[in-house]
Design a protein around this nucleic acid. Sequence first.
DNA 1: TAACTTACAAACATTGACATCTGTCACTCT
DNA 2: AGAGTGACAGATGTCAATGTTTGTAAGTTA
Lengths: 207, 207
Amino acid sequence: MRSPEKAAVAAEDTRERILQAAEAVLRRYGLAKTTVVDVARALDMSHANVYRHFESKAALLDALVERWLAAITEPLAAIAERDGPAALRLEEWFLTLIDFKRRNILGEPELFATYHAATEAARGVVEAHLARYHDHLVRILRDGVANGEWAVSDPDTAARIVRNAMRVYFDPHHVKADAGQRSDEEVREEARRSLRLVVAGLAAGAL
Amino acid sequence: MRSPEKAAVAAEDTRERILQAAEAVLRRYGLAKTTVVDVARALDMSHANVYRHFESKAALLDALVERWLAAITEPLAAIAERDGPAALRLEEWFLTLIDFKRRNILGEPELFATYHAATEAARGVVEAHLARYHDHLVRILRDGVANGEWAVSDPDTAARIVRNAMRVYFDPHHVKADAGQRSDEEVREEARRSLRLVVAGLAAGAL
DNA sequence: TAACTTACAAACATTGACATCTGTCACTCT
DNA sequence: AGAGTGACAGATGTCAATGTTTGTAAGTTA
């Protein structure tokens, strides 16, 4: 008889193996052609067992999306929380986001299609992360006000406006439409200028 | 025997009647269910005759799109070309664009679907108008520099950046995603603030 | 002779029979 | 007692036949 603890660890491990197999299968076959049966076959198990560990195919994809979102949300949180001039942090925050999104969208289109499909389906998984991004921006804006860099009366609205102003540079819709038109370096440079414009507006107390 | 002039006038008139019938049929049945035969039937003519006046179904839709684009491009051109403070004209230019787009996208979704489908297909028809919008913005920016409101080293890049910053408020993709979330007045107000931020940046010479 | 029609070919969309996939359940194995 | 299986129902996707639409050409009307 095994202890319940060991069993729980084994289950966690299987969950993880399924996620890794799912990621590999997705990368190989693409979202449309990936089935739960394929994922199970890659691990030499029955597809019914996958359903023991994930409520549904959607839940499995959501879990994958969750991991990818964490991979970007963590570095962004670090930038939002550290010390230093707010303008610099704001710039680094956006450039990190832009680089990450462009790498994912243009570099791993199949994986990204999954992320995007899940975004449409399970809004909840993604919205929690969007709320975090918003919090990051609010935090940087408040810091910028506190140390005298900027004057902002309503950081909440300001965060939304700044994010919207920069959106073309990281929103999948625009990134895909732009694909191949301009180099990463050109986009980065325009994004940097765009942000300088916004930051100058913040410094002038326009919000 | 009719004079060739009278025949030409009659042809122009038929073209116009076909366009109006096409618009009516589209509004009634939607883009997916509208056929050239339907349009012809609405005018009691054979569909072959429609092809005498328009090279293809795509050309017919393009002509419709051309008319809709002209309806917005003209008022925008007027704002870009008139006198007065550049900041005021820039604000009115964007608010006019935003109001028009939102009315069309949210108010006449069927017609807008046609516009959008034609946009994807016949990139050329639309790109000419996009180039005009860009020219409007460059003109307003130059005027703002000339009369000392702003300092802008490269109006071409600046126009692109300003347009991108305001894009969420008029781009069909974002307008549709936003549908019903916020009132026209709330969106207008946020757009106005966003533009003030940008204008303050221009005044500070950030570009 | 320009505006229009009828008749037809080729491209495209719809449908329905068939196959595959998702999700469940009673069961075995360790 | 929880990880895993095999067999099955219902949902979803595929594919070939059938119908509809686009686009053309030869002919008719005013």
